[in-house]
Write a protein that binds this DNA or RNA. Structure first.
Lengths: 230, 230
DNA sequence: CTAAGCAATAAGTATGACTTTTGGCCCTTC
DNA sequence: GAAGGGCCAAAAGTCATACTTATTGCTTAG
C-alpha cells in the first residue's frame, strides 16, 4: 500500500484492472509485467498474488494471469473500493450508499442493545455538538462530528463487519459535503434525527433507534442520488 | 487457494492467526516461516503478502511481520470468513446472521425495482417449488430452492456488494438446516413469506418486498441465535 | 541529558536456475 | 473423420543466493 515498489506497481495495475483496461478473460504474463514496470520477478509475482487475493485475477499454469469476471471480485476490499471510486465514482458511490442504507439502521439497533455507557454518552455529546456547529454555520466542524457520530455507532454495534464499514460511510459523508449539495446549514430534520438516535441508543430503545436511523439514511441516499446527476 | 504450496501454507498460517494463535502485536519472521514449513523465501513472502492484503499482518523493516489487531482485519474477505468459521463458529455465525438481516431486505427492495422479467419469473417458480417440496417433506430439495431463491434476489438487486454476500447467506441457511433445528416441515409462515416476496418483486412493489423480507430474516435470525445456544 | 551518528537486523529487491502443470498438437486407431 | 492417447513446449510455481534499503536501538560526542 505505502511506499515500496510493490505498492506502486500494485496501485497502477490494480487500478487498470478495476477500471476495465484489461477486460475479463484477458491474460497478463509475469514476464510482460517485469518488462513493463522494470521490476524483478519477485515483485511482479507478489503483486499478482495480491491481486489474486482480491480475486481480480487468477494465475493458471501454461496460460498466464487471467483477469476474472467482475462479479467474482471481492468488492468489499478497501483497495478495490478505492480503485473503483477513482474509475467510476458515481457507480461506486451508488453501490456504497445503498450498502450504507442497509447496514446503519441495523447497526443502530445493535448499538442500542450493546453500547457501553461511555459510548452512549459520547454519542449524545456528539449530537449536541452537531446542533451547535450547525447553528453556528461551522460546516467543517459539523462534518467532523457527523463522521465521528456514525463511526461510533458502527463500532458500538459490536459487529466487526459493521464496524469495518465506517470508512465507507465517511467517504460518503465527505463526498456529499464536498459537492456543495449540502445546504449551508445542514437540514434541521437531519440534525434532529441525530439527536433522536443518540437518545434512543442511550435509552436502549433499539426499535426507535433503528427507525430514526432508517429515516436518516433514506434521506441521505436520496440526496446522494440527486447529487450524482451532476 | 487450491493446491500448491502457497495455498497449503496460507491455509495453515491464516487459520492460526484468525484463531488467535498469534496474538495481535506478536511478530513472525520470514526466515522462521521458511524453516517451519520447509519452504523457500519466495513462497514465504508471497504467503505473507496475501495475509497482508487481508490486513491480518503488516511487514515492517527491521522488525518482522507483525500481526495486526483484529479490528483492522478485512472481515469481509471470504478466506478470513472461512477461517473464523472454523475457529469460532458461533461468534462468526452471529456476525454473519446480523449482516444478513441488514442487507437482504434492502436487496429485496432493490430487486423489486430492478429485476428483469425472467429473474422475477424464476423467483416465483422457486417459491412455488418451495411450497411443493415443503409439503412433500423433501428437505434437501427445499434447501436447494431456498439457497437459490436468496442468491437470485441478491444478484437481482443490481448491487455487486449485495450479490457477493450470497455465499454468506448460503452458509447460514445450510448450517441451520444441518442442525436439525429446522422442523421436518419448514415453518409455513416462512414458506408463505417467500411466496409473498417473490410476488412483490415481480410486481415491482419495493416497499412490501422489503417488509416481507424483513419479517423473514428477523425470524431466521431468531432461529439462528437459538440454535447457537447448543 | 540530549542529539547525532553508527551498526546490526530483517524486510525488500534482483537474478538465474530448476520443477510442475497443462493446453495444444500430432499421430494413431476405430 | 471423429475419438482417444501421448508427446512437447510454454508459463506459472518453486528454490537458492546475493545484494539493497530502511529502521531501531545503542553508543558516543557535545
Amino acid at each position: 500500500m505505502s511506499g515500496g515498489l510493490h505498492g506502486k506497481v500494485l496501485e497502477v495495475l490494480g487500478g487498470e484492472i478495476a477500471a476495465g483496461v484489461h477486460a475479463p478473460g484477458s491474460v497478463l504474463r509475469i514476464e510482460q509485467l517485469e518488462e513493463r514496470f522494470g521490476i524483478s520477478r519477485s515483485v511482479a509475482r507478489e503483486v499478482v498474488r495480491t491481486l489474486a487475493s482480491i480475486r481480480l485475477v487468477l494465475g493458471r499454469k501454461r496460460v498466464g494471469i487471467v483477469v476474472r469476471p467482475r462479479e467474482e471480485w471481492n468488492s468489499f476490499d478497501p483497495m478495490l473500493i478505492r480503485w473503483r471510486l477513482a474509475a467510476d465514482r458515481s457507480a461506486e458511490l451508488k453501490t456504497l450508499a445503498e450498502l450504507r442504507t442497509a447496514v446503519e439502521p441495523v447497526a443502530a439497533a445493535a448499538a442500542a442493545d450493546r453500547a457501553k455507557d461511555d459510548h452512549a454518552a459520547r454519542l449524545v455529546a456528539l449530537a449536541e455538538r452537531m446542533v451547535a456547529t450547525s447553528r453556528a454555520g461551522d460546516l467543517a466542524a459539523f462534518m467532523d462530528a457527523d463522521v465521528e457520530f456514525h463511526r461510533l455507532i458502527l463500532t458500538a454495534s459490536g459487529n466487526e463487519m459493521f464496524a469495518q464499514l465506517h470508512e465507507v460511510v465517511e467517504e460518503l459523508l465527505r463526498w456529499r459535503a464536498g459537492h456543495g449539495l449540502m445546504p449551508v446549514h445542514p437540514r434541521p430534520v437531519a440534525v434532529r434525527l441525530h439527536c433522536e438516535i443518540a437518545e434512543c441508543i442511550r435509552a436502549g430503545d433499539r426499535v426507535r433507534a433503528e427507525w430514526a436511523m432508517r429515516e436518516l439514511v433514506a434521506e441521505a441516499l436520496e440526496g446522494t442520488l440527486e447529487g450524482l446527476e451532476s
